[in-house]
Amino acid sequence: MTISFRRHTFATTLLALSSLVLLPACSSSPPDTDPDTATTTLPYVGARDMQDAPMSSPADTVYTIPAFTLTDQARQTVTNATFKNKIYVTDFFFATCPDICPKMQSAMLRVYEKYKNDPRVVFMSHTIDPAHDSIPVLRDYAERLGVTDASRWHFVTAPHDTIFALAKSYMTGAQKDAGAPGGFAHTGSFALVDAQRHVRGLYDGLNKNEVDRLIREIPVLLKESAESKPQQP
């Protein structure tokens, strides 16, 4: 009895040890194609465009945020050029939103507080209710939130269709919905955009862990921006 027990224990231990050795081999992460980015690098989020290749580079490129022209709370025009050589975090909200917006904006505020003195990072909130959220309303909202410098966090408006088309570009759902609280259905997602107008991350603003992840990933993107060659927007 004793001998067979020992043998049994030995066999079990051998099995356990071999599993430890074999199991890691079962999982494989995709090979890192760029040997220069040994640290984590952010993905490109969104569908790929097919574009004509000027040279012999691959024909499909990553999806780019289209050109936009918006107006912020300081009555300044905001376009893609406003974000040249910068990365930005963006979301969609409306001032009379009863459910997710305060929580979402207070989450955005948390990120903003961490990076408000870093000129390389900018914030932008689009209103999806331009009819109510006039520029004075946006200015008041921003100031009450504690944002006194519009160039650090733009609260922007534009014609309704423009905003909704942009929401789609940033992969944030937003649309009029009489059944939804406040009359608009929208998600609380934040998009992180690099200096080449590519979305590099989507984060659920209502989820603390996701917001923490955004705070961690901004430096990763900043580092990549610093290391990559400057490109035309």
């Binding site: 305060p102 904006q105 207070s106 939130l145 504690g146």
Partner: peptide, 13 residues
């Protein structure tokens, strides 16, 4: 979601 889990509100909003 508006007034905060500890009734703290949100800035001057």
């Amino acid at each position: 979601s508006c007034h905060g889990t500890q009734g703290e509100g949100l800035r001057r909003l």
